[in-house]
Write a protein that binds this DNA or RNA. Structure first.
Lengths: 302, 302
DNA sequence: CGATCTTACGGGATTCGTAAACATA
DNA sequence: TATGTTTACGAATCCCGTAAGATCG
């Protein structure tokens, strides 16, 4: 005969009430049914837990000594259930997201503000890294899902198009290209001093595929888009950046123009593991992220 | 709908088997019944704990995170039950006994040796103190029961006769009284130098009631029976001690003779609380103590 | 097609509540 | 006698196992 939690609850209740009738009422049970619970527990343990010889019920030595263990079990159980219930109702949890720095700085904050307002108990872990580390984090399960510029379709990963991201010219507002007639084509840029991003960036890889490097007038190569912005604003050169990064260049001295590109526009993919389902917290963020995809940004002519 | 321990066990089993059929078998349950346990747990928690889409069952993020809490609850529960079962079967426990030093040194060791052999897991706490502190310890529940020379019948305490304890003369083997004809009466001792115990001892109180103190030839007053023995052996005087303390005087140079006393013999009482039942460990010692009451010790004439 | 989980349903054990018996101060 | 626990018993519930259905590789 195995003991049950119900019996432990009856025991704990009787220990504080010291009266079968009241304890039974507290458990919404008839007194005989309650008595059977206590009796059953005593039988499975092989020990009498309460003396009910006299007017008031009193625990035996064994009955008193059992209290700490019994209460520990009950509270552990309840908190375990409550903890999972909190996760079920999104009052607790954790979600980790890996995404491109441009998305992380420009588009994500608004989404996360709404997410946190809805689910203040959920901890959010953001990794703002380039596409390759994004994918790597999903692979190693450091991130629940990622927004990256790589269509990572492997046995472990699945990818879906998240949004299209076209390229834009950035230059000083007083630069000739700032007022050149539409459409601006890639070859129109080749003559001008150019600020490149590092070779690991997806923009650069796209440009390297379109041009032979030596066909361009490369002024320098930097890692951060913010640095590109500074160089352009200083008149050191022009550059081409994805629409999602244009927020860096919303400055009076800088103009941005759409560039007509051969082939398809760059795409951002939502990448997640194929085998693992998302946690509830991750699923909620996933759904919100899809519902609030970035809207195309308009370039500005100066 | 409340969660049950059974569901937690099913969960823990499925987590390590990752297969409903095997886990069900391990629980001696049909697979559908097992499935219902998991389903019920998932419903009460409001979270899907396992993905069973593909060939093998895999825990969801929530399902994996639930493991530590669930296992903790299960092990706490099992150890709580096992702990009480150990106490029920006297494999564990504690008993504390208060008794007169003479009993503690002369009679108790043999009893405790048998008790410990039967119940090696039970810790025994012995207080070898005089009658008053014995009773005090039972009152304050520092001792489960006591063997003392006081019939402590109060609303809290009940006493039963444990054994009778008659008094014996102790003197040097070459003392005239060692070979005096039976019976030796108390008045036969008045003429000889006498070693008294302190006034708190029950022997002394008995003698003070029988004689006026000034009627005796008091040599000195000591606290310990072992000291009495040393004094007597040195020929400084004679004394009277309870039969239970005679083991101190089993020495070649010392003779012991029964003394015929007016009134009843001294009695040792077993004293316990009236309201509290004894713990199982205490009850076992209680029964053994009663079964092995001291047998009357024979005095020796030299 | 085979392995595996879920759904459907009848039978059996457990548990409940009412009523009566029993114990104690 | 009044309060409070145990016993007795019919009824509702819950849980299990068998069998059929659904799904995925």
């Amino acid at each position: 005969m195995a003991a049950s939690l119900r019996q432990l609850r009856a025991y704990a209740l009787l220990l504080q009430e010291r009266n079968f009738t009241r304890a039974a009422a507290a458990m919404h049970l008839s007194q005989p049914a309650f008595s059977a619970l206590i009796g059953g527990l005593e039988e499975t343990l092989g020990v009498r837990l309460f003396d009910r010889s006299k007017r008031h019920v009193a625990p035996t030595v064994e009955g008193a000594d059992f209290e700490p263990a019994a209460r520990r079990v009950l509270t552990e159980f309840d908190s375990a259930i409550a903890g999972m219930h909190d996760r079920a109702t999104l009052r607790r949890g954790r979600v980790s997201l890996a995404l491109l720095p441009s998305l992380a700085a420009g588009w994500l904050p608004g989404v996360l503000a709404r997410y946190r307002a809805l689910y203040p108990g959920i901890a959010v872990d953001v990794a703002d890294v380039l596409s390759e580390p994004c994918i790597e984090r999903v692979m190693t399960m450091q991130a629940d899902f990622a927004l990256a510029a790589v269509r990572a379709e492997t046995p472990e990963l699945q990818a879906q198009v998240f949004c299209a991201d076209d390229f834009h010219l950035v230059c000083r507002a007083d630069h000739p290209l700032a007022k050149a007639p539409e459409p601006i084509r890639l070859r129109d840029l080749a003559a001008w001093p150019f600020i490149h991003l590092s070779r690991t960036s997806s923009v650069r890889q796209y440009l390297d595929a379109a041009f032979r490097p030596q066909a361009m007038d490369t002024v320098m190569e930097v890692d951060q888009l913010a640095t590109v912005m500074g160089m352009v604003r200083a008149g050191l050169g022009i550059s081409v950046v994805p629409a999602l990064a244009l927020f860096h260049f919303e400055q009076p001295e800088i103009a941005t123009r759409p560039v007509r590109l051969p082939g398809l526009a760059r795409r951002i993919y939502l990448v997640r593991r194929r085998d693992r389902s998302l946690s509830l917290a991750a699923q909620a963020l996933h759904d919100m992220v899809l519902a609030e995809r970035p809207v195309p940004v308009r370039s500005r002519r100066r």
